[in-house]
Structure formats: structure tokens, C-alpha cells
């Protein structure tokens, strides 16, 4: 395809009312729309982000580091990491298994299965927490049995992990299913024909092909796992230093009017979000690069 240069350089034929390309808007329209778009984004995205850091540093760096280094704050960081370290790998295994059976085989009810995998995205976070209370809570299905055997799930760490897992369960599967469907199974067939067993085929052929998609899913899954608030809030019981994740700790500090503390912990989460966005952009870029290379080789 011929490259059409749509630069702002002066056109070689400066006719009055020179025809624009059909897909090109006049300059004033471009400026106006770009201005509206950037204004909207500045107002709704950049301003809140700036507010987090601005409020966190309002009393200076000393107060900021004191708030971040607080024992309860550190305990909440630890719990958030634990919850993510369990739920993200669990959902990676689930995502890979789901994508494998959906992309590599044809069977009845496949589209229903895909819809079911998406289901947690349609459920309000609060309801995601509520359903676990209904199963494991004192009045729930398993409540009496759990009390009898002295197992705490709700208002304890296992409940937080379960609610986080529920909320983040579709992320990896959603990225991998379309990717593996598009890639097809020819390379796996070749590996099997050449004598590889199933696991060898997966580790040596499939995994290298899906690594960028997998990483992308992991980044999104992790960001949500560390930031989940509503679902975790219902099952946590808000015990300081014990069942408080970082987002819950932000809420507690905020409700105690400890604004610098709340925004300091919030700023850690905001940094995490920004790091996730940067990593995500790099992965997108690498993936596009790898695809372009694969296409060049194919030609």
C-alpha cells in the first residue's frame, strides 16, 4: 500500500480550496476534536491521578514516608501480595487449561463455556463477596461445619483470596482464548507427529507462541487482584494488621480523617497501576513486533 503522507507540511499545490483526501478532516476540525478529547481525558484521568500524589505529599516527604512505613500499612501490603500471589497463579493455570480445551478441540456447549468464563466480569464486586459469605459465612451452607472444625474463611485470609480469585478469574482466559484460536493447531500437530508427548508439545511449542498474550493477561489480572476493593471489603471483616488489604487500609485511614496516610497508601497503588500500564504497553508493542516478524517470515 502506498504510504500517504499526511504531514502538516505545506502542500505542493496550494490551490484555494484544494481537495482534501476523503479520509482527512480540515485542520480546524482536527484541532477541535483533539482538543475536546485531550481536555476530557485531562479532566477525568490526569486530574485524579495528580490528586492522589498531590494529597499524599501535602504534608511533605517526611509525613509521606512515615505513613508508608507504618506497621499496619506494611501488614496490608503483605496481605495484598499474598492474595495476589495465590490468586494470580491459580487463574493462570485455569486460563491456560480453559484456552487449551476451547481453542484446540471442538465440542458441544463451547460458546456457553466461554460465556460462563466471562460471568465474573458481569457480577458487581459487592455481590462477588456476598456469595462467598452465603457459602462459607456463619449462617452459610458450610458455616456450621466450618465452625465445628474451627476453620475460618470469611473475615479471614482464605475468604480474601477466594473473593480475589473469583473477581480476577476471566482475565488470563480471555486473553488466551482468541489468541490460541487465531494461531490454530498446526504447530502442535507437527510436534506430536514428530514424537513429542503432550507436555513437551505444550512447553516447547504452545507456550513460546502464547507467551506475550499470557504475560498481558497476568499483568491485567495482577493489577485487578491487588486493587480489588468491593469483593474483598465484604469478606474481610476489616481487622487492622490482619485482614486489611491495601485498598481496605486506604478506606480505614480515610474514614479516620488520616488523609495523608490514606493518600500515601493510595499512591503506592497508583504507582502499581502506572507500572502495570507501562508493562502492558511494552508487551503490546513486543507482541505486535513478534507478529509482524512472523508475517515477514511467512511471506
Amino acid at each position: 500500500m502506498a504510504v500517504v503522507v499526511t504531514s502538516t507540511l505545506v502542500k505542493p499545490r496550494p490551490l484555494a480550496g484544494a481537495p482534501l483526501r476523503a479520509t482527512q478532516d480540515p485542520r480546524w476540525v482536527r484541532w477541535l476534536l483533539t482538543g475536546i478529547a485531550l481536555g476530557f481525558l485531562a479532566f477525568f484521568l490526569v486530574l485524579p491521578l495528580a490528586a492522589v500524589f498531590g494529597e499524599a505529599l501535602r504534608r511533605g516527604l517526611g509525613a509521606y514516608f512515615a505513613a508508608v512505613g507504618d506497621a499496619d500499612a506494611l501488614a496490608s501490603v503483605k496481605l495484598t501480595l499474598i492474595a495476589a500471589l495465590i490468586s494470580v497463579p491459580a487463574n493462570v493455570v485455569f486460563g491456560v487449561a480453559a484456552a487449551w480445551c476451547i481453542a484446540k478441540y471442538s465440542f458441544r456447549g463451547k460458546s456457553l463455556l466461554i460465556t460462563l468464563i466471562d460471568l465474573p466480569f458481569a457480577v458487581s464486586p459487592v455481590i462477588s463477596g456476598l456469595i462467598y459469605v452465603l457459602v462459607f459465612g456463619a449462617q452459610g451452607w458450610l458455616g456450621p461445619w466450618l465452625i465445628e472444625h474451627d476453620v475460618k474463611i470469611i473475615f479471614a485470609v482464605p475468604g480474601i483470596v477466594l473473593a480475589t480469585t473469583f473477581v480476577t478469574c476471566p482475565f488470563v482466559a480471555r486473553e488466551l482464548i482468541p489468541l490460541m484460536q487465531a494461531q490454530g493447531s498446526e504447530e502442535e500437530y507437527a510436534a506430536i507427529t514428530l514424537g513429542a508427548n503432550g507436555w513437551q508439545t505444550f512447553w516447547r511449542v504452545t507456550l513460546p507462541n502464547i507467551k506475550w498474550g499470557l504475560l498481558y493477561g497476568v499483568i491485567l489480572c495482577n493489577a485487578r487482584a491487588m486493587g480489588e476493593f468491593g469483593a474483598v471489603s465484604v469478606v474481610s471483616g476489616h481487622i487492622r494488621g490482619e485482614t486489611n488489604t491495601m485498598p481496605l487500609h486506604v478506606e480505614i485511614l480515610y474514614n479516620e480523617y488520616n488523609f495523608v496516610g490514606a493518600f500515601a497508601v493510595a499512591s503506592l497503588l497508583a504507582v502499581l497501576a502506572l507500572v502495570s500500564l507501562v508493562l502492558k504497553s511494552i508487551v503490546e508493542w513486543r507482541h505486535a513486533h513478534a507478529q509482524a516478524q512472523a508475517q515477514a517470515h511467512a511471506c
Binding site: 485531550l38 481525558l41 484521568l45 490526569v46 486530574l47 485524579p48 491521578l49 490528586a51 492522589v52 498531590g54 494529597e55 464486586p125 491485567l220 493489577a223 485487578r224 491487588m226 486493587g227 480489588e228 476493593f229 468491593g230 491495601m246 485498598p247 481496605l248 486506604v250 478506606e251 480515610y254 488523609f259 490514606a262 493518600f263 493510595a266 497503588l269 497508583a270 502499581l272 497501576a273 502506572l274 502495570s276 500500564l277 507501562v278 502492558k280 504497553s281
Partner: peptide, 26 residues
């Protein structure tokens, strides 16, 4: 443009509680 494009996903990545207190501060 690339930074703006990456920033679009901020509401997905930023924990909702953080967004909540930031919007209230504004």
C-alpha cells in the same frame, strides 16, 4: 499520542478505592 493511548486504561488499572478518594479530594 502513545502515552495518551496507554493512559486510557488507567480506570482499569487504578484500584477503585483510590479513584474514589482522589475524585472526592478534587
Amino acid at each position: 499520542k502513545r502515552i495518551v493511548d496507554a493512559l486510557i486504561d488507567l480506570p482499569f488499572a487504578l484500584p477503585t478505592a483510590v479513584a474514589g478518594i482522589a475524585l472526592t479530594a478534587i
